[in-house]
Amino acid sequence: MSQTSDEIVHDPEGGLPRLLEIMRRLRDPETGCPWDIEQDFATIAPYTIEEAYEVADAIEREAWGELKGELGDLLFQSVFHAQMAEERGLFSFHDVANGMADKMVTRHPHVFGDESRDKSADQQTVDWETIKASERAAKARGGALDDVALGLPALMRAVKLQKRAARVGFDWPDLAPVLDKVAEETREVVEARDKLSHEALVEEFGDLLFVMANVARHLGVDPEAALRGANDKFLRRFRGIEARLDAKGKRPEDSDLAEMDALWDAVKAEEKAAKNT
């Protein structure tokens, strides 16, 4: 005997069917939640991005107790988008799941097909990209960069654009000319600051960031992760400054740059000493 809607909603072991029914009920035009009913793809997209970052943050902090909840929040975003799509007659959540399953089977012939698993992770990556390229060709994509998503964080998108261009031969052969380009773009930023408009300065600074993303790519570094690490380090060290000032009965606004810079160096030295012990 199948469950009623209320039984599914209140079933603590209902799993995915329960979540899908809750989402359907939230969007019901007569009995649902007014906020959820008013949303569309564009208004929900920022929340989807935010939840993805919160998953990454929990992993970065190794906050495993939080990860389950963050993954649930991210899953709910997929359920929300799929419900809105189903209401428009576009596709359902089951179509999303089946489409992903088909993609994974197709892209892993060494697991689900006849190909040998006797290959390195690097070779599997090459094979993955080859399959993706054939999929893009089947979709009649016009250019090599056409399907790099617009909504990606800018640094991540820069790396993806550069990787895609590199596949068709548009790339420096090694790191040295990329570093030369960094120096060139830095000079152009300084020149723009002194001689050009603010709009020109923004453009030159964007060029510098784009080249720095290329440096990261050639070094095999994820620039988003590197910048998050730098942010965390800055936060940690500045809090160290605040703690040392507080011990003197002072706040940062009661201090000056020279004092805070000396405290920064002290915090930095303490961190380095702790790493070497």
Rank of each mutant, 00 (worst) to 15 (best):
P46G: 05
P46N: 08
Y47F: 14
I49H: 06
E50D: 11
E50C: 02
A52N: 09
A52T: 12
Y53T: 13
E54I: 07
D57S: 12
D57K: 09
A58T: 05
I59E: 05
E60R: 15
R61F: 07
E62I: 12
E62T: 10
E62G: 13
E62C: 12
A63Y: 03
G65M: 03
L67F: 02
L67Q: 00
K68F: 15
G69D: 08
G69E: 05
E70F: 04
L71V: 13
L71I: 13
G72S: 12
G72A: 15
D73W: 08
L75P: 03
L75W: 06
L75D: 03
F76C: 11
Q77M: 13
Q77G: 07
S78N: 10
S78I: 15
V79Q: 00
F80L: 11
F80P: 00
H81D: 01
Q83L: 09
Q83F: 04
M84K: 11
A85W: 02
E86K: 05
E86T: 03
E87W: 00
E87R: 08
R88F: 02
R88T: 04
G89C: 04
G89K: 01
L90Y: 12
F93H: 03
H94A: 15
D95E: 03
V96E: 04
V96Q: 06
A97P: 00
A97R: 06
A97F: 14
N98R: 14
N98W: 07
M100T: 08
A101K: 12
A101Y: 06
A101L: 15
D102N: 14
D102Y: 15
V105G: 01
V105M: 10
H108N: 15
H108C: 09
V111W: 04
F112D: 05
G113T: 09
G113R: 03
G113F: 11
D118V: 08
K119N: 08
K119G: 06
S120Y: 00
A121T: 12
Q123I: 01
T125C: 12
T125K: 13
T125F: 12
T125H: 07
V126G: 02
T130S: 13
T130A: 15
I131M: 07
K132P: 01
K132D: 07
A133L: 09
A133C: 07
R136N: 10
A138H: 11
A138G: 15
K139M: 14
R141C: 13
R141G: 15
G143Y: 02
G143I: 08
A144Q: 10
D146T: 11
D147I: 07
D147S: 07
V148C: 04
V148H: 00
A149V: 10
G151T: 07
G151N: 10
P153H: 02
A154Y: 09
M156R: 13
M156S: 14
M156F: 07
R157F: 01
R157M: 01
A158F: 03
K160F: 07
K160D: 10
K160N: 09
L161H: 04
L161N: 08
L161K: 03
K163C: 09
